[in-house]
Write a protein that binds this DNA or RNA. Sequence first.
DNA 1: GCTATAATAAACGAATTGTGAATTGATGGA
DNA 2: TCCATCAATTCACAATTCGTTTATTATAGC
Lengths: 225, 225
Amino acid sequence: MEKILLVDDEPKIVRLLSAYLVRAGYQIVTAADGLTAIDRFHREHPNLVILDLMLPGLDGLEVCQVIREENDTPIIMLTARVEEDDRILGLELGADDYVTKPFSPREVVARTKAVLRRAHGEAPDVPLEIGQLHLDAVRREVRLDGRLIPLTATEFDLLHTLMRQPGRPFTRLQLLERVQGYAYEGYERTIDTHIKNLRQKLGDPHRQPRYILTVRGVGYKMAER
Amino acid sequence: MEKILLVDDEPKIVRLLSAYLVRAGYQIVTAADGLTAIDRFHREHPNLVILDLMLPGLDGLEVCQVIREENDTPIIMLTARVEEDDRILGLELGADDYVTKPFSPREVVARTKAVLRRAHGEAPDVPLEIGQLHLDAVRREVRLDGRLIPLTATEFDLLHTLMRQPGRPFTRLQLLERVQGYAYEGYERTIDTHIKNLRQKLGDPHRQPRYILTVRGVGYKMAER
DNA sequence: GCTATAATAAACGAATTGTGAATTGATGGA
DNA sequence: TCCATCAATTCACAATTCGTTTATTATAGC
């Protein structure tokens, strides 16, 4: 699980962002001032730092510099509105991304994901192919024998997950998490319905399925070819 | 993140352009006179220089020459004079583009993007064509069945983004980023309204759209032909 | 055959999108 | 400078689609 160091002196913002980030599956460590931030950084070795520009004591820029001198941990800066703060103009942030206040928590989560993906050397969306079943992740299209199969967003994500690791069985819980995000709360058997619909669209009878195989007692898996 | 050196002696213009460029995702370094500009240039190694023609001390042309003698960093000139001479002179001295005052910040951002794209050897602004819909990125014109369709700047950028990769769906967040700049802060569904207006202008009913297709659960995409 | 697990169909409720209208902000001219 | 205009954004509500749940039937494995 990836660890994020969240540095802000406003408890309200820390609470809000923490909630969203935890929901998105990250582990959160917090600090309310610059010195604590650097201490936590050394102790915890976070995968990413979210840093408010204005902090008591050592401010965000200084913390940013200290971190940069040590390693390449990605940094996202939270800044006041650009137009109103001349300090920002011509400033070397040294950050990987920044978000201006007021921001939406969703935006911060989105940028966090993007920055971490970049940092990991994101896996490119290679076209997947199993038998006559082709999936293009960029276009979000699935073709069977060359014919376009219209899928809903959920069905597509489900199939995509299965096709990325053919032969590996996924539990319903894993599939639910993948499809609904980490903050799932629901009935495992929802997946069954999606699988049913997928099989129908793919003309894949459950009796002798060509593509989506049932793993009794576990969940489902993709045929290997 | 790309770094831009912005050289102008009018603080108002520096503030205005900085705000727009930061919003567009660039990192800004500023200078108010020619000598400082050259100093900053050496220190900061910007990816692009935006240069006012008239500067105290060393003027823009001279700064341009100095930079050109050293390397190929792209230069955009800002000029208040309208005479042809200056334009030609500036271009002869090695400026990659020029903008005459009074200019709109949007235009400067647009040219900045274009010049940097060119500098990276990326695809030039080729005319795009889907069915009877033609888009000319250089002239920022869109024609349907040969008739000019007047679009706002945002509508144009949105359509341009979609048309550059027909068949690929874009999320509202991706479109917002593209249209409002990197540091967007806003409501995703603003995009819906722009799409609605675009469809209206293109005579593209949402029920059986010819050009802009809705991808439910994802966003929008351009038809492929 | 018995039991646990999976498949299916149908009904309900939640989420997404389209749209008109109101609001805010920028731009240009008198 | 003030006003008129246009663009961009936000909001509210209706229409639609999709996801989830429930109930029932079918099946696999012991």
